[in-house]
Design a protein around this nucleic acid. Sequence first.
DNA 1: TCTGGGGTCCTAGGACCC
DNA 2: TCTGGGGTCCTAGGACCC
Length: 419
Amino acid sequence: MKYFALVDCNSFYCSCEKVFRPDTRGRPVIVLSNNDGCAIAFNKEAKDIGFGEMCEPFYKLKDRIRKHNVAVFSSNYALYDNMSRRVMRILHEFSPRMEVYSVDEAFLEYDGFGHYDFEQQGRDIRNAIYQRTGIPVGVGISKTKVLAKMANRIAKETGGVCVLNEDDRIDEELKKFPLKKVWGIGRKSLAKFTELKIKTAYDLKTFPDDHLIQKIFTKVGRQVQDELRGISCLEMEDSEDLKNTGTSRSFGYDVHNKHELSEALAHFATHASLKLRRQKSVCFSISAFIHTNPHKPGPQYFGEDSIVFSTGTCDVMKLIQAAHQILDRIYKSGHGYKKAGVMLNHVVPAGENQMDIFQEDPSDNHKMNLVMDQINKRYGQHTIKSAACGLDQAWKTVADYKSQRYTTAWNEILKIKVS
DNA sequence: TCTGGGGTCCTAGGACCC
DNA sequence: TCTGGGGTCCTAGGACCC
């Protein structure tokens, strides 16, 4: 019998900020999305006083934030990514079979051969991560991924570790567990389940008509149902390579000028191509889009197009060029653009490109890409870049409450004053 | 005034082929 | 004029996740 553990960092972004800002201890903490647009992460203190609705616009919260002395941060992905890596590295010591599911959570698999004291294992994981990173985590362990997810939810309310092993105990918890909290059940299917009078996880587990579930909720719904029954359908995914990747941003203001859009797209293509090169992959197509602000009244425009390459590429210059070609096709003057982005699709490992990518296309300058990456790694992001990205980048997103990159930039390292 | 960003998987249906 | 059946591949869009 296999077992799955789900380890999930408690309000991860807030916890990262708290590690370096002990003065926020005991205070509510909120982290904002890109562009300081809306609130996306809340610590327990913030949730306790009523915050917690995902993606509520920041401007609507300002009064309450002031009233409750909430500590507010712009999102600082350099910090979160680095803290995430530290957590994952520690976690890896606990099982060789690990799947990093997101920036703040990972599955561990335990095979059926060893005899494990899972309660103890859970406590050890928590202690190790907290001691070595300052990040608190919850650990849920059970027979399937869906049940491990559920155990993790329970763990967060009951002291940090929850092991669901005995069938009677599982059923008891399933009966108390609302369907909408089950992993894989979203808003749309919840409505349909309600029509079928399926309200709890237990209702779904014991629903007699499997064919009906298959018909309405497709394979996905059936898998959730089986997983709740303790039949494992969702395996560990071992490849961490992205299959698609992209970069997009909302702008700090409405952009009317095509030149600014072209700079932004160059910037996004640069960023996305770096993600490709990091995992030693190439893409066979690029798409780019620009769109107006959907929250504003008046005519909207959403322009998008793509270009397919005959050979895979991760060459930043080639991708910028392609993004600009797309912009020429989709740009319409007279609109104020609020958001744009670049996506790289049909991604495959560079080695799987029909021929060796490093010899295949002479127009791809790989040496130059490698040198640029090395310089930027050593001296900081954007030290060297294509002039197409522009210099002032006035369209940049707003981030008025950003903390320092304590762990990844020498000049922003934590300073301690002794007085 | 101010409303995020980045992913995955699945299915239906069209295009195409024999 | 009448006009089958079966298969594959691809893509757009839906749903879900963090």
